[in-house]
Design a protein around this nucleic acid. Sequence first.
DNA 1: AAATAAAAAACTTTATAAAATTATTAAAAT
DNA 2: ATTTTAATAATTTTATAAAGTTTTTTATTT
Lengths: 217, 217
Amino acid sequence: MDENNTIGRSVLNQIKKDIISGSLKPSSKLKLDNLKSHYSVSTSTIRETLNRLVSEGFVKAEEQRGFFVCPFSETDLIEIVKIRNLIESYGIEQSIQKSNIEWESKVVSAYHRLNLEEKNNLKNESIFNEWKKYDFEFHEILVSNCDSANLMSIHSNLLDRHRRYQTILHQTRGQKSILEHEEIFNAVLNKDIKKTIKILQIHLDQGLEKALTLFKK
Amino acid sequence: MDENNTIGRSVLNQIKKDIISGSLKPSSKLKLDNLKSHYSVSTSTIRETLNRLVSEGFVKAEEQRGFFVCPFSETDLIEIVKIRNLIESYGIEQSIQKSNIEWESKVVSAYHRLNLEEKNNLKNESIFNEWKKYDFEFHEILVSNCDSANLMSIHSNLLDRHRRYQTILHQTRGQKSILEHEEIFNAVLNKDIKKTIKILQIHLDQGLEKALTLFKK
DNA sequence: AAATAAAAAACTTTATAAAATTATTAAAAT
DNA sequence: ATTTTAATAATTTTATAAAGTTTTTTATTT
């Protein structure tokens, strides 16, 4: 189940989590000595991790000058959302076409969890991270029946990078977003590919717009 | 210009090239000691490189068991081509929409080089790699005006992985492929997005079909 | 032939150090 | 006062070695 067998993988997940959550701030320098002592691992392990995160788009390496958390930028966010839209739409289309009981039941349960969380969230603002987790898990389940490990891997990476922006900007859209989730859910169960993709696009576009307003502040 | 400043980057490019060319064979074990002596670098450098190549989809890491060149599989190839089609179509669409003189002239010159090479290639079969290089450079130029570094990075990775299959399978389709390149070229200059995408899809599908027949042998 | 145990090989991680580069500080010159 | 230069410090990059695990191979026994 848990694939945190090696220290290398464990520290990879930790650092990635810290970048997504914002405790390692955008554009900040990742000094090897600091990381080494903070995560209690050796330099080589840290460097292996950072090199992986470079390929995954979370860390930027400037040769001879070291590693930095990838900076925040509006264009980067816009690009990520657009590519996510492209990939996710295609993935959902494939998933619906290959639809089967197992997948549908996963969708139902993922939506259920998200829905419960979203109702709670309106009252209790403190559980932002928990809610976002279910949000992204729902979207991940939607493409999970597309039968393409490569597509899912690219999608998962885009979700992670998108989540960094949403988390750090503390992006919320309240009732509207919740309704869109419900519409997507229903369209998927009805195997209505066009409608699903249409609402997904609206969902992502509206979210992007909200994020961009938060950027100005 | 050349970004091979550090040994790490240089050996990354070398190993990637050797995987794409097939001199490091699919599924083969990448023993640290062998690589270390073959590329004349230290273990830490090798491990950093391999970890990056894992994220880029060229190397597979099995915990405690080491690194392997990513295996060849039909489904992997099919997935790569489909996602490439999706990404490349979108990228070309954006590129054409933002079309300008500089980009058009790059397209013209990339096509010119490819065309010269393809004419030669019919006579001289030995320059396969050179020809493939111009082939992929042409496709890369086509999306290069999309104004999305993220899209181009994903696309470039997909091209590299696709090239590995084409190179090792020694995939060629002769005159048909050459004609499709010409059609794509003309459609792009005419800013005919729909036609471009349509021919691209045929181009990739036919190539995939050819590759799959080579797989059987 | 199959199962077990011992030995060897290979990977993972840490620690240390030297070489190379960049960043910072202090002094000198304009 | 600002710029230039020189010296120092900090950091990255690479290499090497050794300890600890895990896997693989070999040898032995049943």
